[in-house]
Amino acid sequence: MRKKHSGRLAITQYSVWSFLFVVVPLIFIAYYAFTDNNFSFTTENITRFFTATSNLTEDDGTVREVRTYILIFMRSLKLAAISTAISLLLGYPIAYIMARASEKAQKTMMTLVMIPMWMNFLIRTYAWMTILQDTGIINGIIGKLGIGPLHMIGTETAVVIGMVYDYFPYMILPLYSIMAKMDTRLFEAARDLGCNSFGVLRRVIFPLSLPGVISGVTMVLIPSISTFYISQKLGNGKFFLIGDAIEGQYVANNLHFAAAIAFILMVILLVCMALVKYFTAKHVYGGE
């Protein structure tokens, strides 16, 4: 009886907590997004996101009119997608090796993945600035070897490196946890039935790891798409991303438009996730 009671209490606490800190803020964002400065209903903020234009000067000097926020969004999406893809390609084999290693090695590797997360996000990004600068560590080393200098800071590459580094653990963890649970006899069965190593990966390991891939991709893509700090510091402010746009509007005390951008971003991401879930549902097994 007592146990049941405390269980119910925990659920109540959880409900209150998530209502206060998840639902209420979301309602506020939606409320701000659809109101003007006098808090009367408007869709203007939303329309502005899709219609605002500005002039973009191309490298060859021609000037082109572009839809400002669509362009920013697409740029954010591109960098986030590249970072996510790199995280996945790097993280997948590492997670696999971790999952198959001895128990002791697994613990060590897990700690190594986690340690950077214990440090402040801003400090980590600053550290990458000093590494990637024209006078930074990398250029110092390759300069001694007579190569370079390599201009890295302020490029898209630097922003991608920062994103991959910062969000990599979020890719590793779900992949590792699903791979560690996999029944290795299934791999033996696949080999027995005619698969070489690549066949085992393609036909058994990968399909079984799909739930991990999906949550890893989600957990890296979403923070990378909405980051603003990394692009400011490692991109020298040259790559204005959707997160920068929200921050900029917020700092300029333009709360309603900031909320509108955040709201649209959220809707787009939710739709994307729903689509991913729909198309992979067939392959994702619910067993064990």
């Binding site: 006899r185 033996e188 069965a189 080999r191 027995d192 005619g194 066949g199 079984l208």
Partner: peptide
Amino acid sequence: TPPHKRNVNTVFQKYALFPH
């Protein structure tokens, strides 16, 4: 010779069916 090149197949303990 690796398993996939042997003309031998196995019924595994607890079956090892592919759940996906």
